[in-house]
Design a protein around this nucleic acid. Structure first.
Lengths: 175, 175
DNA sequence: CAATTAAGTCAGCACTATTGACGTATTCTG
DNA sequence: CAGAATACGTCAATAGTGCTGACTTAATTG
């Protein structure tokens, strides 16, 4: 037995093939694609002293104005403390405003201001351009296929959040 | 003029439509898809005290055994210091070994051990299963379209890294 | 031999995220 | 109506990942 106590540290010189039928190619592409997809807004955000978290908050508040804090936490899947700082900064800089909930006054409904709307659009513009360009490089009816694929990548129990068209979403989707 | 010094903080109550032709639907889906795509390995990694960065290093060392540190930095687009901590942990735990470069002895070629190979496979298994499941939900020849799309999402100047099939990549792709 | 390069390391910092605890206002329930 | 539950905000402490800049060692290159 030539094994060390910490296990066999002999180098494996062969690259992973598609062992066990694992699709390393698409896994890797998904990583690269997302890395570059987020790089454009990340650069802009740096000018504001913001990070990626600010973008996400801004995005969903623009997508679903009137969101409550609890709903936002649910969509982002982060904790209250993680959101707190980011949200406070966006409010302090006049990108988002809070209104007391009309039915339940404990709630704070979140709305973008004109400035917040503009920033959200500016951040999304290069991302949309990148997506549009990628679709152009494909043949014909690509967009539908991509939408289907991405939606199918999301955990089934979370697909209610997806809300491809917010205008068609009813209140009952949430609980 | 009713504007405050910090700008107009009037709430915008309308959800963003596809203003300026921005495809918010796909932007949002890409976010959700990637979030869930990384959630499975993230949970496993927690058992080892590792994070997502460890996974990425492990992935590329398994994909291209013999990578040097400099090449790895170039692929990951992070700094030496960011890599240092993560790489050291993977070496200390016997997942990766370093061999002195045969031509240039300053270089350290990185190889997975059996343990490192196993962990890389284990981490990628749920991701590949998710991708495979998503492709199944689409019609017929979806995989090719998805590969095309994801590749097109990557910055053109970085596509040389992509290396869809490492066995076909020649040394000249790097500099 | 001098300059450059590959790698490792140190110190300090920023951002995002975590858990747990606690306070306050409001609403719901028995 | 009193007490429980809820929505939100905040505090303290911690972790993981990333950054910049500076420095050392060893090896290669000119």
């Amino acid at each position: 037995m030539l094994k060390e106590k910490n296990g066999d540290v002999a180098p494996i010189r062969a690259a992973v093939a598609n062992e066990d039928g694992i699709d390393f190619t698409l896994i890797e592409l998904f990583f690269f694609a997302y890395r570059d997809f987020t790089s454009d807004p990340d650069q802009m955000l740096a000018d504001y002293g913001f990070g990626r978290a600010h973008h996400r908050v801004l995005h969903f508040v623009n997508r679903r104005p009137g969101l409550t804090v609890a709903e936002l936490l649910d969509v982002l899947k982060i904790t209250k403390q993680s959101l707190a700082r980011v949200l406070k900064q966006l409010i302090d800089t006049g990108h988002i405003v809070q209104l007391q909930g009309p039915r339940d006054r404990r709630q704070r409904e979140l709305y973008p201001t004109a400035r917040g709307r503009e920033l959200a659009l500016a951040l999304s513009r290069p991302q949309s351009r990148r997506i549009h360009g990628a679709l152009m490089e494909m043949k014909g009816e690509g967009r539908k296929a991509i939408e289907q694929f991405l939606k199918a990548m999301v955990n089934p129990e979370l697909r209610v959040q997806i809300d491809a068209d917010p205008l068609h979403r009813m209140e009952e989707d949430r609980e």
